[in-house]
Write a protein that binds this DNA or RNA. Structure first.
Lengths: 226, 226
DNA sequence: AGCATAGTCGAACATCCGTTTGAATCAAGT
DNA sequence: ACTTGATTCAAACGGATGTTCGACTATGCT
């Protein structure tokens, strides 16, 4: 029937990746057994160890399959931003936060983004290290870019604020259900990505541009009630 | 020796809670076995089911033990803030974010705060529901307070920005190691809580106060690079 | 002293997990 | 037709897990 013999192999490989991605996003890594994955994928249990070697390697493959294109898109936007003169803070935020948020808008990408958001707080150290390796070059580039648009910020202040940005994004991606606790009204039924992106841009840009007190962090510039 | 007979019972109960809290924070819920907990606590394996009924109930008890005092402190600060006239946005942020961050500064509370940060993205639905129940009244009070200091914000915009605040805080608490990726310098050795609080206040207050475009979210007010 | 009860303990229970094995299957090459 | 190599399959492996059981201990009460 088919000319390409290895095609069936690729089909089961991707079926496993799809099923694993969905189940990991719903029940976590430890909460998802290989038996559940292979059953959902319609393949034999041993296929996971045959194609990936171990459950750990499967998890990393699930991430690598989508993180790498996403990071490529981030770097592409960063280059366009640099070519445009490096002046636009909002554009830089979009280069960083846009790709994952837009991926979250696609029905196929939504579950992976939720998985990605969760991965930031994953206890497993080996997975943490693997994901960190996928992010490292991208984060480094963006750190430099943010330092260029915000030259007045001292290094520790800038790094903390970037930390805030990343954390905010991670939480958004995880799709934590606390959202429904805050937003009693229904805000995000089809998840209007463009509206969310512009809201995030406004909030983060204002935070990043906030003035810095002279006595850098030593004494908190807080007025307590009274 | 001791007059109070039930004291040994309370001692093992708390020893289990302490050990579980530490191990959950380090390896997650599914990654921590009852055997590991009871061994670390120096008690018999069956003690968990005797004192708590099940592992699930133990998890919920670990959270309830610390969330309730923390939320009481939040509400106390909120009341002081209301008594002071409800004008100070920074003070309101402190009432919400101060207690968990200060708890993170104490050596005993740090591991729980990390656990708490992780819990926001926990896949287990039953635990999610239990934690949501512990938060619900507090969140409701703060929603109203923020709406009062930021009356110019439309409701959806306000709720999203509060969502950003909660997400940022959740990520901070989780102590995700991505921090070290962004901050190549060593920022947080003893974790200067006061400095962190004021940094967070500056960032979040600026974000909350950011102006809202007229065409509310429909068309993104984004200048793309070029 | 003697009973009742709360707590502890070791041992086992049934179940689920990731992984491995070895035979079966199938298309392609000679 | 026969071999080769890649893939699939059912079955089992050893180990870890949450939970339960019954015996044992020690304390408080009458």
């Amino acid at each position: 029937m088919f000319d390409y013999a290895q095609d069936m192999g690729k089909e089961t490989r991707e079926a496993i990746l799809d099923a694993a991605e969905a189940l990991f996003a719903e029940h976590g890594f430890r909460g998802t057994s290989l038996r559940a994955i292979t059953q959902a994928a319609g393949v034999n249990l041993a296929a996971v160890n045959y194609h990936f070697g171990s459950k750990q390697a499967l998890v990393e493959a699930v991430f690598a399959r989508r993180i790498e294109p996403m990071n490529r898109e981030r770097l592409a936007r960063l280059q366009r931003w640099e070519a445009a003169g490096c002046g636009d803070l909002e554009g830089l935020i979009d280069a960083f936060a846009g790709p994952p948020l837009e991926l979250a808008g696609e029905p196929r990408g939504a579950r992976f983004v939720r998985l990605l958001g969760r991965s930031y707080t994953e206890p497993d150290e080996r997975l943490q290290a693997a994901i960190r390796g996928m992010y490292e070059p991208v984060i480094e580039r963006f750190k430099q870019a943010f330092a260029r648009v915000l030259p007045h910020l001292p290094a520790p202040e800038l790094y903390w604020r970037l930390h805030f940005l990343v954390g905010l994004l991670a939480y958004l991606m995880s799709g934590a259900d606390l959202m429904r606790l805050i937003a009693s009204c229904r805000l995000c039924d089809p998840l209007d990505v463009e509206a969310l992106k512009s809201r995030l841009q406004r909030f983060v840009a204002a935070g990043l541009r906030a003035p810095v007190p002279r006595e850098q962090g030593a004494v908190p510039a807080v007025r307590r009630g009274g």
